[in-house]
Amino acid sequence: MPLPRKFRKAALTAETNGFFKDLNRHFAVHFQRGSTLVVTFDNMKSRDMPVPRFPWGMEFLERRGHSHLGIMMRRRNDWFRQSRLCDFFDELRDGGFFDRFEKVVFYGSSMGGDGALTFAAACPRARVVAFYPQTTLSPALAPWETRYRDARDRGDWDEPRYADAADTVREIGEAMVLYDPYHQLDSRHAARLTAESVTHLRCPFLGHKIPRYFAFWNILSTVTTRAIDGTLTEAEFYSLLRARRDHKSYVRHLLTRATDHGHAPLAGQALAWTGRHRPDWQLERKTRQLGLAA
């Protein structure tokens, strides 16, 4: 199958100091840089990336001098459930590829978070950083997952290798999982991750937009850098997350989400706190729209 034009520059760039492998439905792109290797996986937003296409997170990791192995989709929403991709990670594991690096981190969001949590089993000493990940789309394991029907139909969910994050996460050193506990489906996936190696970092009322909000609040780079370096503590994370209180857009979003999901008392508490600390925000119109007491 010919290589699509939008991937050709990534192939040429990687082959000068790394490798590019065509795995039929996916591509593996490796850039050799520093002693830390970060393995990333495409997500649904990757389809919106500019052409020519590079692996998710490339610019961020390149600026920090990290080596990078990116798993890219040939077609959008192809959830890494292909035996050839499993073979590839088996080959990396058995061939000692991960042993070249002092640190190995698997990193992704949503479907990319699922990829990070599952394929990290190829390197048990790895750390995983996953934003609102799914754990599986297997109808037998997650029949309540009603999203991503096309991806479920496209993937091989009977392939036993790297299949269920609830199992593979027990084989790795450490995982940080960031998610919205009030997002029903995302929180059900997070609840399946019960291994002691998992740190749950809760981001209430941010839904599937956690990185977008973090970027707006100027904390995304700090959170991600320290999570990859292994220096981010829960206390520091929640201290950084307090930045949301200084943004009116977040408070408006919180009030809407809370009332829409039947948490009017919580919305009232948030409104009272905001009224005391930021009376200049003038949220009266939003308050009337939601039927809350000022």
Rank of each mutant, 00 (worst) to 15 (best):
L178I: 15
L178M: 14
L178H: 08
L178P: 10
Y179Q: 05
Y179G: 06
Y179N: 03
Y179P: 04
Y179V: 13
Y179W: 07
Y179M: 05
Y179D: 09
D180H: 06
D180A: 11
D180G: 12
D180L: 09
P181T: 10
P181E: 10
P181G: 09
P181K: 12
Y182E: 14
Y182R: 04
Y182P: 07
Y182F: 15
Y182W: 10
Y182T: 11
Y182C: 08
Y182L: 10
H183Q: 12
H183W: 03
H183G: 06
H183R: 05
H183V: 01
H183Y: 04
H183K: 03
Q184W: 06
Q184T: 11
Q184M: 06
Q184S: 13
Q184K: 11
Q184C: 02
Q184A: 13
L185H: 00
L185G: 01
D186W: 05
D186P: 07
S187P: 00
S187Y: 00
S187V: 00
S187A: 13
S187W: 00
R188M: 08
R188V: 01
R188A: 07
R188I: 01
H189A: 03
H189Y: 03
A190W: 00
A191L: 03
A191D: 12
A191P: 03
A191E: 13
A191G: 12
A191W: 01
A191F: 00
R192S: 12
R192D: 10
R192N: 11
R192P: 09
R192Q: 15
L193I: 05
L193H: 02
L193G: 03
L193D: 05
L193Q: 05
T194D: 14
T194P: 04
T194N: 05
T194A: 15
T194S: 14
T194F: 02
T194Y: 00
A195V: 03
A195S: 15
A195D: 12
A195L: 07
A195W: 07
A195G: 12
E196M: 07
S197Y: 11
S197C: 14
S197T: 15
S197A: 15
S197F: 03
V198C: 10
V198N: 09
V198L: 06
V198I: 03
V198M: 09
T199N: 09
T199C: 05
T199H: 13
H200G: 11
H200L: 14
H200D: 14
H200Y: 09
H200R: 13
H200F: 11
H200N: 12
L201M: 15
L201Y: 12
L201W: 12
L201C: 11
L201F: 15
L201T: 10
R202W: 03
R202N: 07
R202D: 09
R202G: 04
R202V: 06
C203H: 08
C203S: 09
C203L: 02
C203F: 06
P204K: 00
P204Q: 06
P204H: 05
P204D: 13
F205K: 09
F205E: 15
F205G: 04
F205H: 14
L206F: 06
L206I: 03
L206W: 00
L206P: 02
L206M: 15
L206D: 09
L206G: 04
L206N: 06
G207N: 08
G207W: 01
G207S: 10
H208V: 03
H208M: 09
H208S: 12
H208T: 08
H208A: 10
H208K: 09
H208Q: 13
H208Y: 09
K209T: 08
K209W: 02
I210G: 11
I210T: 10
I210P: 07
I210R: 02
I210L: 10
I210N: 06
